[in-house]
Amino acid sequence: MTVNKAPRIEDVARIAGVSTATVSRCLNNPDSVRASTRLTVEAAIEETGYTPHFGGRALAMNRTHTIGAVIPTMENAIFARGLQAVQERLSDSGTTLLLACSSYDPEREASQIRTLIQRGVDGLLLIGEARPESSYELLKMRNIPVVLVWCNGETTDHLCIGFDNREAARRMALAVCDYGHRDIAMVAGITSWNDRAARRVEGVREALESVGLTLDETNLIEADYTLEAGAQALRKLMNGSNRPTAVICGNDVLAAGVLQAAKQIGLRVPEELSITGFDDIELASVMDPALTTVHVPHRRMGWTAADKLLEMQSGSADGSNVSFATDLIIRSSLARKS
């Protein structure tokens, strides 16, 4: 059996009629080589099928041109759309995105951070601020640039690209109150190690207290971000002694589950029960009824986070947080209390 040997840089140099050093410069610093020589080398690379050895290039340049990202879940469309924007920006600069998923587990995230550092990533993108201090200490010790997204830097000095989760939820809750609702419940995400979910609960609680209402254990349920968890939460609320006329949800997936359960138990939405979400995923506008929600600028966050990471590598980042505005999207799932 004949085994084809992988093409070497010497093969490219021989075909192009140049030195291996010139081939290396074409690969690593093309602007330093005359255009005619570069085109000749590129043609030789294509002819031979040569690909540079990743480890060797990384060692020579002290960079791997990779960025790592750890997200809580791949099941939430909002993270997928944000990461698509990150990937688009990084790809334009010749940088590869390595992705891991923590399933909202801080220990698993810490392990993935260590693994990505061992892989030699040039920087890391993480979701939110809440994680063990040991993870931050490791990043500092290894001098790894890090950008946190979906947050605005309330509890950390690290660079944050996001929005004010508390304020966005507060505005939504005030809108529900303005529609005349007084029996209001919330189905929130799990707040442990999730600053985004915790801030949204704080915002709703602050809004309700400002109009003389409360958000306590009788009208607050924390749930996993799944349709079934949202549905179970509504059934529990409706079996209680203080049935709500409006349910504020921590994200659109929970809201979809609440809406599904409402229909199953015979509640008319929004005539008997108003429902709101958070994120404005594509599903929100095609639900029946269409979901009132908070629009999150996920793509702008992704683009900006990628730009900041690239700037941090080049030493040109100014270190300033970027906080985007969110918008209330009022749709037909929210109605005035009759």
Rank of each mutant, 00 (worst) to 15 (best):
T304E: 12
N76M: 13
F278P: 02
V211D: 00
S19P: 02
N143T: 13
M141V: 11
I71K: 03
C177T: 15
D183Q: 13
N321Q: 05
L334D: 09
Q260G: 00
T37W: 07
V211M: 04
A58F: 10
G302S: 05
G277R: 09
A231S: 14
P244F: 01
P132M: 00
L328H: 03
K236S: 13
P52M: 05
Y50F: 15
L39H: 07
H298K: 14
T245P: 10
I329Y: 01
S111T: 14
I67Y: 09
R114T: 15
G68A: 01
R268H: 12
A306F: 07
D11W: 09
E271F: 06
A173K: 10
A335P: 03
Y179P: 00
C101E: 12
S274H: 08
S32Y: 01
P145H: 13
E271L: 06
E47K: 15
E209I: 04
I248H: 03
I190A: 03
H295G: 01
D92A: 15
A16M: 09
R89C: 04
T226M: 06
A13H: 09
V322A: 00
L334W: 11
A16L: 09
A335M: 11
A13T: 09
D164I: 01
G266H: 05
G55E: 08
T48R: 13
L124G: 01
L273I: 11
F278N: 02
W193G: 03
C101V: 15
Q112L: 15
I67Q: 10
A306G: 01
S24F: 00
E167A: 00
G250R: 03
C101W: 03
A197R: 05
D252P: 09
V147I: 14
I113R: 03
T66D: 04
A35K: 12
N321R: 02
L237Q: 04
D224F: 04
P106R: 07
L328R: 03
A233F: 08
S135V: 00
P30F: 01
N165C: 04
A198Q: 10
Q260E: 01
Y50C: 06
R200E: 05
I117Y: 02
N28C: 07
M287P: 10
R14V: 10
T115Y: 09
T22N: 05
L174C: 04
L116I: 02
I71A: 11
A35T: 12
R166G: 12
R63S: 15
S91G: 15
Q232E: 12
G153N: 04
V322H: 04
V23P: 06
A110G: 12
R196S: 14
I190W: 01
I184P: 10
P52S: 13
G123F: 08
K337N: 14
V269S: 07
T115R: 13
S210V: 05
E109S: 07
L59R: 07
D195F: 02
V211Q: 11
R119Q: 15
